[in-house]
Write a protein that binds this DNA or RNA. Sequence first.
RNA 1: GGGCGAUUGGCUCAGUGGUAGAGCGCCUCGUUCACACCGAGGAGGUCACUGGUUCGAACCCAGUAUCGCCCA
Length: 907
Amino acid sequence: MTTAPGTQPSTAPSTGSAPSTSAVPGAARVPDKVSLDGLEERWDGAWAEQGTYAFDRTATRDQVFSIDTPPPTVSGSLHVGHVFSYTHTDVVARFWRMRGREVFYPMGWDDNGLPTERRVQNYYGVRCDPSLPYVPAFTPPHEGGEGKSVKAADQVPISRRNFVELCERLTVEDERQFEALWRRLGLSVDWSHNYQTIGEPARAVAQKAFLRNLARGEAYQAEAPGLWDVTFQTAVAQAELEARDYPGHFHRVAFHSTADGTPIHIETTRPELIPAVVALIAHPDDERYQHLFGTTVRSPLFGVEVPVLAHPAAEPDKGAGIAMCCTFGDLTDVQWWRELQLPTRSVIQRDGRLARETPEWIETATGRGYYAELAGKTTFSARQAVVDALRDTGDLDGEPTATQRMANFFEKGDKPLEIVTSRQWYIRNGGRAEGRGEGLREELLARGQELEFHPDFMRVRYENWVGGLNGDWLISRQRFFGVSIPLWYPVDADGAVDHEHPIVPDEALLPVDPSSDVPAGYTAEQRGVPGGFVGEADVMDTWATSSLTPQIAGGWETDPDLFERVFPMDVRPQGQDIIRTWLFSTVVRSHLEHGSLPWKHAAISGWILDPDRKKMSKSKGNVVTPMGLLEEHGSDAVRYWAASARLGTDAAFEVGQMKIGRRLAIKVLNASKFALTFGGDGELDAPIDPATVTVALDRAMLAGLADVVDKATAALEAYDHTRALELTETFFWTFCDDYLELVKDRAYGSGDETPSAQTQSARTALRLALDTLLRLLAPVLPFATEEVWSWWRTGSVHRAPWPASAPLVEAAGASGDPIEPVDPAMLGAAGRALAALRKVKSEAKVSMRTVITRAELVVPAGQLALVEAALDDVRAAGRAATLTLVGADDAEVAQARGAELEPPQQV
RNA sequence: GGGCGAUUGGCUCAGUGGUAGAGCGCCUCGUUCACACCGAGGAGGUCACUGGUUCGAACCCAGUAUCGCCCA
């Protein structure tokens, strides 16, 4: 990786203003008093003004580092988890920017979907009716009905296009607040590349990608059983499922052999589905049912004849070991129905009630009589009726027994999902073996191998998910605020809709809304009439749009020049919870459209846990808002907390860690102030001449720092930002507590006009180290480091090159009288020697300023030479007049013996 | 039921074969000479458990327990 020339502004913007070392107004020289307060506002403003994070689109792909951030849902609220994971991303972004990459770091808002839809209904007092035409310049009946919901009856029905316009209007305010938070946090986003998933460009991309899928046969419609939420009246995809415990009862019910009437008992939690039974199924190895395979039985009440079949998905130890297969009670039924090619006998409708008409497969008069009592009932009432009838006929064996079963729910719903058969659109994702399904699944698994997950073990979540898919991706949603499926269907002369021959818009016209736009070759009057057309009423699943964020942000097809500079992207940062949804669906779309991965790396952040080790949630009553957090502790402090947690590892919400971060940030300001004031302002602008570092201790410190640079760089390259931070932080504290203390007397100098070589060595080493440390800390503490940078350097530290070890190594060896390759352990040895002197004073309970008149300093023999070389500094820092240095083979740590302390000064 | 991860001082966590580490908290002390949003010193752990491999195990292997998550 080489630094791209020309991307690194090495001088301040040419404003030519007076205090020329500073790029920013308000900052000048080293202030007498330093503070973190107000840094966020000041520097956010300066960065925006100077375009510090602006993406230079002349950079070529190999010079670019591109980031595909999942856009947060704006209708929800930001929580500390967002702050946590987005900070991880920003650390990565800042690191690569300093490495000389041109960082493409756009931000989007995910405003497409159900949460926004609900807010708009209440806020404006409207509801969407896609059958209505668009009304230009529509004025909503209410404005700001936040909090209380407008009753459905009072909501004004409006066209989808009007509805979408209101969604866009409302989300603007949310987005302003989100942007303010991200700015305060210091995300180095290029805000000129902002997008919305419901915005026109995003809709156009989503529709175009769909049409391409359609043209290649990857998108198809099917009349098929699918999961259906009766509350929201919409189809639901496998990815939106949530299995929950649900109470129910096992009912032991008798079927009867058609040969001799022998009862065969099954156990079911859903007796109301008996009219939909199509077979009884047991495990092929189950000895109890061998004699029944191939025979038929009659259902109780309804008298429908069904076969007894064998299938390995039947669980012998569950219930009676033989199950009734209905169309459809659960996903296993769907599997049996498909694999055993059973007939479809659906009775559950989209509204969750049983069909009003008696099905034709119930032929007996008594059966039809029983059904008539169920018609139109909810599943709950129908179950009661069936159980009562079974009890009457004696086909209920014993009383129902309570049980807990796992049922599938829509993640936002509170009623178990039903499975209904309907016409829906799908995109192939390897979930079905038919067509090229099996091959596609393997291709997608191979993509999972190709993608570099951080941490690596997160890959198994992807693999488990892809391996466990049991159907293609259902993208139809019977909702309004989403991207329309861009199709119309011809209506024949009899008024029947011909779904088999959809009318496709020209790509140049996208985005279209089929509920208000008219397909080419038709007039608006032909909508819904024989010989005319109808628009597809459904919208796409939100993932069908958000799976295309690399394409939306990168300007796919609309800005091919940009797209080829950023795609495939370098990294997708995200939470572990959305590997199966967002990550997977994005891989699918990219694989199908581009034949590539959407990104090279996936950086997976963990959860934030509350003190009870539970996932943080609003219901926990945690009232800490992200903005409040930043205001209370400061952004650098909160970032430090976030950056202290490794990728993929859950982290505790810990205010203590933020306080440590704040302490570090303040220390950066104070130590910098101190290190920069030895030479007075006059030396601030002077170039750093490494050749003036001649004292062994100074050289050893720089050698140690060189090592830190190498290791921190390697860690960040490997997405291990915590390791980099830990190394840097540890060194920084040693630098402050030991090195600064050891050299401060020498760095002050005698006060002569011309500093001695020893004094100059310390001053140069301090500036060199500070310059390096500020760069190393900049990704985590962007505000404090930028503040210090502005005192004495030009431009922004965030555009300064990432430090390299070579110049430090060179400075460490730059003595005109190279006694050695200098040993970086010298700083530690001298530090421990100083600690021994401090310990004497601490145990004597006297001030650290107390003079030690005489002492014997015993150090491990192996460190004797190291301490010897730094002895003058040790003596000065320890206020020791006379020190006798002794090496001891058995000594493990430095120790001061026989110390004599100066009597305390009277006051 | 399958899979993944975790288990190290009171707390939060580093540490992948060679004498147990950090920060916070705690105890003692100091201090307005960069820093009280401070400094120095100190106490505190049989690295969840049981076996195994090894000269040597927090670390590798097998199993157990507990917790969290994902999938059935």
